[in-house]
Each structure stands twice: as C-alpha cells, then as structure tokens.
Computed example of a mutant assay.
Amino acid sequence: MTSTHTPFPAEDHDLLMSVKELKTWVEDTARAKSESASLAMSKAEEQRQKLIEQLKSTDPIDEKRIKAFLVRLKDAASKGEKEVMVARFPNELCTDHGRAINQAEEGWPETLIGQPRVAYEIWKEHLQPLGYHMKALIVDWPHGLPGDIGLYVSWES
C-alpha cells in the first residue's frame, strides 16, 4: 500500500536536499567559515601592527598611568603578592625579538625600544633606588616561538 502522505512537513521541504546539494551546501559553508576566519585573522594582525606602532613611541608615560600603576602595586602587595606586571608587549619591541630576555642575558634592557624602554627607564630612575627589582619574561610561545614579553616589578629579593 503506497501512501501519498509525505513524512516531511511542507514548511520544512527546503531542508530536504539531494546528496549532491547537501555536499555543495557543506562545501559552501566551509568556504564561508574559512573566509570569515581569514578576515578575522587579518583584522587581528592589522590591530597588532597598529599597537606595535603606538608602542614604538618614546613619548613620556603620563602621570595618570603611573599613578594607576602605583595603586595597583600597593593593592597587589596588600594581597600578599610579590610582583606586578608593568607591561605586556609584542617581541617586536625588542631589537632582537626577545632573544636576550629568553636567554636571561645581563644586557637585555638595551634591546627594549619605545614604551617598554620608557617604562624601564622610569623604573631605573625612580623605583630601583627604592629597592624595587625589574625582570622581563617571554609570556607566551605561539607555535613554539617567543611571543609577547612581560615586564615585572617586584619588591622581594
């Protein structure tokens, strides 16, 4: 006995596709996702390059940012912490892309450029005489290579 009644509701008929149509739809969807991901990566890289250009500036750090840092330092100390991250920046702001920092070489500060160098100079002039220490570390390793660098101020030997 043949039924003339279809098991698919009329409003869902556009969901029913042949295998060929389904494969084409999957390919189109994958292509659109890939293009979207590629566009997002391009935008992220563009923003990263803008950040690098901004951070290459050797303009003085404004008093508001310095005050905010000092408040953060006191807050961290009151919570029992022994250090705070002063800055995180791309390794392109080191003349050697972070090699000296990664190798813990004595002259690593000489590789800093732009705002990281300005932050280092502020520490050297104002905080080091008060007993504060500074260190730099590679804080991420994208694809196994040195990525961003963190500058830390600490108050314990």
Results as ranks from 00 to 15, higher is better:
residue 4 T to P: 00
residue 4 T to D: 03
residue 6 T to M: 11
residue 8 F to T: 09
residue 9 P to N: 07
residue 10 A to C: 01
residue 10 A to D: 05
residue 12 D to T: 14
residue 13 H to N: 10
residue 14 D to E: 09
residue 15 L to D: 07
residue 16 L to D: 04
residue 17 M to P: 00
residue 18 S to A: 03
residue 19 V to P: 00
residue 20 K to V: 05
residue 20 K to S: 06
residue 20 K to G: 05
residue 22 L to T: 00
residue 23 K to A: 06
residue 23 K to Q: 07
residue 24 T to K: 13
residue 26 V to W: 07
residue 27 E to M: 08
residue 28 D to S: 05
residue 28 D to V: 00
residue 29 T to F: 10
residue 30 A to S: 08
residue 30 A to H: 09
residue 31 R to Y: 12
residue 31 R to P: 09
residue 32 A to M: 09
residue 33 K to M: 11
residue 33 K to T: 02
residue 34 S to M: 13
residue 36 S to L: 07
residue 37 A to H: 00
residue 39 L to D: 05
residue 41 M to Y: 02
residue 41 M to Q: 06
residue 41 M to N: 08
residue 41 M to E: 07
residue 42 S to L: 04
residue 45 E to L: 04
residue 45 E to K: 08
residue 46 E to D: 09
residue 46 E to S: 09
residue 48 R to W: 00
residue 49 Q to H: 06
residue 51 L to T: 02
residue 51 L to R: 01
residue 52 I to S: 12
residue 52 I to N: 14
residue 52 I to Y: 12
residue 55 L to K: 00
residue 56 K to M: 03
residue 56 K to W: 00
residue 56 K to P: 01
residue 57 S to A: 05
residue 58 T to C: 08
residue 59 D to A: 15
residue 59 D to W: 05
residue 60 P to S: 14
residue 60 P to I: 08
residue 60 P to M: 11
residue 60 P to V: 12
residue 61 I to P: 12
residue 62 D to C: 13
residue 64 K to F: 12
residue 64 K to V: 13
residue 65 R to Q: 10
residue 65 R to E: 13
residue 65 R to N: 13
residue 66 I to T: 15
residue 66 I to R: 15
residue 68 A to W: 02
residue 68 A to F: 06
residue 69 F to Q: 05
residue 70 L to Y: 04
residue 70 L to D: 09
residue 70 L to V: 06
residue 70 L to C: 05
residue 71 V to A: 11
residue 71 V to G: 03
residue 72 R to Y: 15
residue 72 R to D: 15
residue 72 R to K: 14
residue 72 R to E: 15
residue 75 D to G: 00
residue 77 A to Q: 04
residue 77 A to S: 02
residue 86 V to D: 07
residue 86 V to F: 08
residue 87 A to K: 04
residue 88 R to W: 05
residue 90 P to T: 08
residue 91 N to M: 01
residue 92 E to P: 00
residue 94 C to M: 10
residue 95 T to I: 06
residue 96 D to S: 10
residue 96 D to V: 11
residue 97 H to I: 00
residue 98 G to E: 07
residue 98 G to K: 05
residue 98 G to I: 02
residue 99 R to Q: 12
residue 101 I to Y: 04
residue 104 A to W: 01
residue 106 E to F: 07
residue 106 E to T: 12
residue 106 E to M: 05
residue 108 W to D: 04
residue 109 P to R: 10
residue 109 P to G: 07
residue 109 P to L: 09
residue 109 P to C: 10
residue 110 E to P: 08
residue 110 E to D: 15
residue 111 T to G: 11
residue 111 T to N: 11
residue 113 I to Y: 10
residue 114 G to D: 08
residue 115 Q to M: 02
residue 116 P to D: 12
residue 117 R to L: 15
residue 118 V to F: 05
residue 119 A to V: 03
residue 119 A to Y: 12
residue 119 A to P: 01
residue 120 Y to I: 00
residue 121 E to S: 13
residue 122 I to N: 13
residue 122 I to E: 12
residue 124 K to L: 13
residue 124 K to V: 03
residue 124 K to C: 09
residue 124 K to S: 13
residue 125 E to Q: 15
residue 125 E to W: 04
residue 125 E to H: 14
residue 126 H to I: 00
residue 128 Q to R: 14
residue 128 Q to W: 01
residue 129 P to Q: 06
residue 129 P to K: 08
residue 132 Y to C: 15
residue 132 Y to D: 14
residue 132 Y to E: 12
residue 133 H to V: 09
residue 133 H to Q: 13
